[in-house]
Amino acid sequence: MRVEIWSDIACPWCYIGKARFEKGLAAFAHRDDIEVVHRSFELDPNRAKGDTAPVIDMLAAKYGRTREEAQAMEEHVAATARSEGLGYRTEGRVHGSTFDIHRLLHLAKDRGHQDELLDLAYRANFAEERSVFDTDVLVRLGVEAGLGEDEVRAVLADGSAYADDVRADEREAAELGATGVPFFVIDRRYGVSGGQPADVFTQALEQAWQGRVLTPVGTAAAAACDADGSCEIPPA
């Protein structure tokens, strides 16, 4: 059975949702029979390469908040991430175009290292002092994930490499009705939207495995990042 996950490296709820999904998968009896595929979804597809801004400034502008309020928003997300055992920096991070990262993830998929690269990229973006919008950082992440340095540099230097694959994923997400990420599709029959609790993912996997007639499940307050780049905090 296949699980496809649409996400963006810039989305904190995708970072958290991946951790929760993996906990839900670990509790699923048939976890060894599940194939997980990560697919591309850019929250800011019109942002030019090299156009970066501090995350706090971006949040303040997007939501019409003060920098102090934006910082508080980040602290809330950070607390949620840390409750899942994830590292999360609330200062010093930047926001930018994730198109090159998605292209590199498609190369990693072809080479059997997609999940490793995604984990490294999330960690670099949210927990470490490394900007994933820097080409040299992306090269190092690719090599750490098991890719060849020359091949990584060649893909990053050629803006057309894997570009069609990224766009195809994004078109497919739209066709499936995804308006935000993370978005999980189980066996092409069942969708789970947002960073749901781990037990929701376990339940969804169990229902899909049993071959039931399925409808979407989950908590209404599950957090996600919308297609316009908004990453809402669910109500308490």
Rank of each mutant, 00 (worst) to 15 (best):
R2S: 13
I5F: 07
D8H: 02
D8C: 08
Y15L: 03
R20L: 07
K23L: 13
A26P: 10
A26K: 12
A26L: 12
D32H: 11
D33M: 13
D33F: 11
V36Y: 07
V37L: 12
V37A: 12
R39M: 02
D44C: 05
G50M: 11
A53R: 11
I56N: 01
M58H: 12
A61H: 14
Y63I: 13
R65I: 14
T66N: 13
E68N: 13
M73P: 04
M73E: 08
E75D: 15
H76M: 10
A78L: 03
A79C: 09
E84Q: 11
T90G: 00
E91A: 10
G92W: 01
R93V: 01
S97W: 04
T98E: 00
F99R: 03
D100Y: 03
R103C: 10
R103P: 00
R103I: 10
D110P: 08
R111W: 09
H113C: 10
E116W: 10
L118D: 02
L118M: 10
D119P: 04
A121G: 03
A121C: 13
Y122D: 01
A124I: 04
A124V: 03
N125Q: 07
V132F: 01
T135G: 05
V137A: 05
R140W: 12
R140A: 14
L141C: 06
E144W: 07
G146D: 12
L147E: 01
E149L: 08
V152D: 00
R153D: 09
R153I: 10
V155A: 03
G159N: 11
S160D: 15
A163I: 08
D165Y: 10
V166N: 06
V166S: 01
R167E: 12
A168H: 08
E170T: 14
E172F: 12
A173E: 11
A174K: 14
L176I: 15
L176W: 15
G177Q: 06
F183E: 04
I186R: 00
I186S: 03
D187A: 14
D187N: 13
Y190K: 06
G191S: 15
G194T: 06
G194S: 11
G195T: 04
G195S: 15
Q196H: 13
A198R: 05
D199H: 15
Q203R: 14
L205C: 06
L205I: 11
A208D: 06
Q210P: 08
G211Q: 11
P216D: 08
P216L: 12
G218W: 04
T219C: 14
A222R: 03
A222K: 07
A222M: 14
A224P: 05
D226M: 10
D228S: 10
P235F: 14
